[in-house]
Design a protein around this nucleic acid. Structure first.
Lengths: 132, 132
DNA sequence: GGTAAGGCTTCCGGTTGATGGAAGGTCAAC
DNA sequence: GTTGACCTTCCATCAACCGGAAGCCTTACC
């Protein structure tokens, strides 16, 4: 199957699929004319990558998950550890963003948003604010 | 004042300060020996940048905020609009991450995390899961 | 047989926001 | 006079791709 079809089936752009091949995440067969030829197993692998990436795993983590996926003797604890680390990281990111939002929200509320030049947001950024 | 001092005073690494100059965010004077020579106004500008970036504004948004900062006739509404757009974006990012966390959390809870190979996380990623 | 469209190939460059390092000039102290 | 800290420029690298150019391959249509 050509890359266009693999792209449709996996939900990944062709560009991304070639990129994943470049960095060694898969190596499809080639037909006589030099076209890449994807098997169903390749597509499966691509979908795995698409799902993992959309769950926030980095490409390197995906690489690790893929090797665990193919390791029939894997221990589920190994997979769980990766997922839990990711969870902690996501929680940290959320907390950081919430803090950011609260601060920004506070500033926006205090800003009149009219035609006058007084602006607590600018004051804050310039170091003359009362919040930070 | 040399870049090292400006770095200390602004809280930005020297590398970053030079980078900001490269992309046209400031242009300090030079002394006879070719060293950059920062004024207090430069340092003020750098702190403004440091604060804006840490509030999640992109470099281009910082550029815009800086020009509003120096525009004595600015309307606070202009600044507020930028901040509000950023707020919406941050909220969207938070919602996305929360969704991600919930899903991942769900998977981690269902995973035994023992020495056996059965793993709902891998099942999910491989498309054999029950959640997605 | 010609040709036009669309899909495929490789390769190169750009994105964002810096960061690391090499090679070399400068300055202050001992 | 030489060490060490600081400064300069330039070039490369990171993640995870995306866009586009130049050039094959295949298929359809006349």
């Amino acid at each position: 199957m050509n890359i266009g079809i693999a792209s449709e089936k996996s939900g990944l752009p062709s560009k991304t699929i070639r990129y994943y091949e470049d960095i060694g995440l898969l190596s499809p067969a080639r037909t006589g004319n030099g076209y890449r030829d994807y098997s169903m197993a390749d597509v499966h692998r691509l979908r795995f990558l698409q799902r993992s990436r959309s769950l926030g795993f980095s490409v390197d983590e995906c690489r690790e998950l893929l090797s665990l996926y193919h390791d029939k003797d894997r221990e589920s604890a190994d997979v769980k550890a990766i997922a839990e680390a990711k969870l902690v990281e996501i929680d940290r990111k959320i907390a950081e963003l919430v803090g950011l939002r609260d601060l920004l929200h506070h500033l926006v509320e205090y800003c009149q948003g009219d035609e006058r030049p007084d602006c607590p947001i600018i004051d804050e950024l310039s170091g003359e604010g009362m919040v930070l």
